Amino acid sequence: METTQIEGPEHAEKPGVEDIQQLILRRICFLDYAPGDRLKEAELAEEFGVSRTPVRDAISRINHLGLVETLNGVGTVVVKLSPDKIAEVYDVRLHLATLIGKSAPVQINQGHLSRLRTLLEEARALNKETESRKYMQINYRLHGLTRDLIGNSVLRSFWTQAFYQAASTWHNLIEDAGEEAAEALINELVDLETALLEGDIEAVGHLQHVHISYGYRRIRRVLFGDPI
């Protein structure tokens, strides 16, 4: 289980609603909170050193994403997305990807390329011995890089929400996907490296569309028995 520190600079002050929301989402994404697990406000408030109000507000925001629900007599629990919901999420992600670079395009810089190459190096190490947790961490950081390449704030917000909705489903299949998942991640990173080297931000969106589509096909094969 992760501690209260969130990726990025350490928080000198108590975490706010946004910080708490992001950490809970990350735990759901990494399957630290699995479907059926309860989110206990009192325990989370004690962990974060805050009152229950910001915890409740953070959970309320997550509820709007459909990742948790409140059940009478039970409390707030993590939910497993239905096949229909998964299909809707991936349909939205595919459409959002086509908008990357077309509205408020970001200027690609050396920092973006350096982050990408670090991820590629780590992903290539995974190809020899796939570790699901490490895969999830790389995939999460890749999402962060892609998010930072989106200049339109509204698009960036929707892109992030859709990622979290899809991530726990995909990460739940990593053990079954094994080496195939690691190879797919490498291929995605190699393609993105080329796009960044060319300074082609619209190509980043196109590539995200392609690789999200590939990923959804793998999900459908495992969950629904679709043919290869």
Rank of each mutant, 00 (worst) to 15 (best):
E2R: 15
P9C: 10
E10Q: 13
A12F: 15
P15I: 01
G16M: 03
V17E: 10
V17M: 12
Q22F: 12
A34T: 04
E41I: 12
E47P: 00
S51F: 04
V55P: 00
I59N: 00
I62L: 05
L67D: 02
E69G: 02
E69T: 04
L71I: 15
G73Q: 02
V74D: 04
V77F: 03
V78Y: 08
K80N: 12
P83S: 00
D84R: 12
I86K: 13
L94W: 07
L99T: 01
K102F: 06
H112Q: 00
H112E: 01
L113K: 13
L116V: 03
L120H: 05
A123E: 02
R124C: 04
L126C: 02
E129R: 10
E129C: 04
R133E: 09
Q137M: 11
R141E: 10
R141K: 07
R141V: 03
L142Y: 07
L142T: 01
H143I: 00
T146P: 02
N152R: 10
S153G: 01
Q161L: 07
Y164W: 06
A166R: 10
S168M: 13
W170G: 08
I174Y: 00
D176E: 15
I186H: 05
N187I: 00
N187Q: 14
E188F: 07
E198C: 05
D200G: 05
H206N: 09
H209N: 09
I212V: 13
S213Q: 14
S213F: 10
G215Q: 06
Y216M: 06
